[in-house]
Amino acid sequence: MSTVFERPKALSDVLMHYCPGCTHGIAHRLVAEVLDELGVCDNTVGVAPVGCAVFAYNYFECDMIEAAHGRAPAVATGVKRVLPNAVVFTYQGDGDLAAIGTAETVHAATRGENITVIFINNTNYGMTGGQMAPTTLPGQVTTTTPYGRDPKLIGYPIRVCELLSTLTGTAYAERVALNNVKNVRNAKKAIRKAFEYQLAGKGFSIVEILSTCPTNWGMSPVEATRWLEENMIPYYPLGVYKDIGGDK
């Protein structure tokens, strides 16, 4: 018998803390699979965020750093400048990357910092119990938008890939989703491409991953995948927003 599917080596052999049905675990696995396939795990430094993925440092077999909230791209910059031949990635949520860490994100991108950012967009602050995130959809109920997000009062969600694609330093920006098998497979291709771009020295690469949060959305894991498809994808269309391709 041959193995069709098994746990990647770069994913630590520990039970992740994520809630049932939360797709963070899938994103972790895809990153680990790519590290394995590219054979770079022992030459990689990962930077974990503050938020649901705060314990990501326990889940990857490469060296890991736990950064302050929003500061992962700055920390990754410091690492990459010291170890230019190492693979350096950050793994961040929407509050971390697009609210408190907006400056670090935008400037790492505009510097063309040769790092890879894995960005989990699940439209809320999961770890603290489901508050409004910069990516919370108009009308979406969270614990701090109990009557639904009203753009007149608190503005509109940020479309991160679109924003970063305007920057010259961004080499690659793609939005993917984890709501079904096909999209998960596409997500892996995007993650692989992002790491390959880093290995080729092309500059800043980001994969925005639309992810579910069944616990805070208040629905079953399967319902959450449908909610993602019906509500998030229309607002956050999937696809490649920037790809400098073979140039540079």
Binding site: S2, V4, F5, H24, I26
Partner: peptide, 19 residues
């Protein structure tokens, strides 16, 4: 049919598929 769709979607990576 060992398509591994189940494993692809498993967030806690508990599934191994062989054929």
């Amino acid at each position: 049919i060992a398509c591994a769709f189940c494993a692809t979607m498993c967030p806690h990576v508990v599934i191994t598929v062989e054929k």
